[in-house]
């Protein structure tokens, strides 16, 4: 799980081109949108693309997407729940 989360942080930074952010700057449970990293709805679409390209998980409904993309923790939980055990 920890490995997945740190990998995910690096992938988020790369996908969204967060130049001045380092993986360790992102708290597992901090909100990605609004206050936290200051991401917006276009970023949420880009993060869904990340899930699809890197983890082959497709999120169809943007409303569902918002829940999954709350934090790095929620993304990691979702990825793990979709991976074969």
């Amino acid at each position: 799980m920890e490995e997945l989360k740190s990998k995910l942080k690096a992938q988020i930074i790369e996908a969204l081109n967060l130049q001045d952010t380092k993986p360790e700057d992102i708290d597992d449970n901090a909100p990605l949108f609004g206050e936290g990293l200051g991401l917006d709805s276009i970023d949420s679409l880009e993060l869904m693309v990340l899930l699809e390209r890197q983890y082959h998980i497709k999120v169809e409904d943007p409303r569902e997407g918002r829940k999954i993309l709350q934090s790095v923790q929620s993304m990691a939980d979702f990825i793990q729940s979709k991976q074969p055990a």
């Binding site: 880009e46 693309v49 699809e52």
Partner: peptide, 10 residues
């Protein structure tokens, strides 16, 4: 490249 799937909207 991605065959019309998983496209970044930006």
């Amino acid at each position: 490249q991605y065959k019309e799937t998983a496209l970044n909207p930006t």
